[in-house]
Design a protein around this nucleic acid. Sequence first.
DNA 1: CACGAGACCTGTTCGC
DNA 2: TGCGAACAGGTCTCGT
Length: 274
Amino acid sequence: MPELPEVETIAGVLNNGANDQPPLPGCVILEARLLWERSLAQPAPEVFRRQIAGQSIHSVGRRGKFLVFSLSQDVLLIHLRMSGDILVERGDTPIPSHARLLLHLDNGWRFAFSDARKFGRVWLTKDAGQVLNSLGPEPFDEALTEHDFWLSLQRYHRQLKPLLLDQHFLAGLGNIYTDEALNLARLHPLMNSQKVTEEQASRLLHSIRAVLKEGILRNGASIDWVYRGGDFQNYFRVYRRTGQPCPECGTLIERLIVGQRGTHYCPQCQDLPE
DNA sequence: CACGAGACCTGTTCGC
DNA sequence: TGCGAACAGGTCTCGT
């Protein structure tokens, strides 16, 4: 479910707190409860419970679509996948129906990893790199230049959309922001990455950064039954807008399946060469 | 290497 | 109204 802007928004709220919840940094984890053990990727459940108890939370960050919690001894990593969310509620409130992991905090509040579809995963490790090192660059990394981006596109002979979704290539894009970025860059989702010109690559990188930036500015998108305050869904150019007019030219948005993902694009603005 | 299908899961929406 | 199919913000593994 969440992509870079949503995860960034969640990390920000957890780190700084909000009107209805305190910030996590400074809290001590008293006890962990695993309600669905398969959500735990690493280590074994007993080890996890023993090891995390007593650790304090130093900060909450993000790498790609991973939430990164720096604890006093270890790093807690959470990937929300399709339906995951983090809820921080008072300890005496009812346990959320899809809670998979609960952390009881020393301030009387309770941290819950909620995940209806059970695709999300949790790691507790001393070496976050072991999990995160295979990720591609952060889209906003200044070291990622337009020229580098073009060269990396040249290294593959793949359809643009599946390549952008590949977290080893670039970290953070998901189905929404990939469709949005390709439309803004006026590139067809099936275009071969090797055929992208240097000028088009530059346009694509700018578009990726623009849609992610706007997503973050609007606190992410809230669609389906998962609502967390963001309103980027009201500004989609093509995503889930099949049959509606393209904001640029008015041509009706079309939908096709690419790499088994629903894909939305403007057949006029995003034409497929040859 | 690149692509498609299947798996992992539950809940909502669509179409007849 | 009812019911099965389709669909959903992700990623891994396997076969061709």
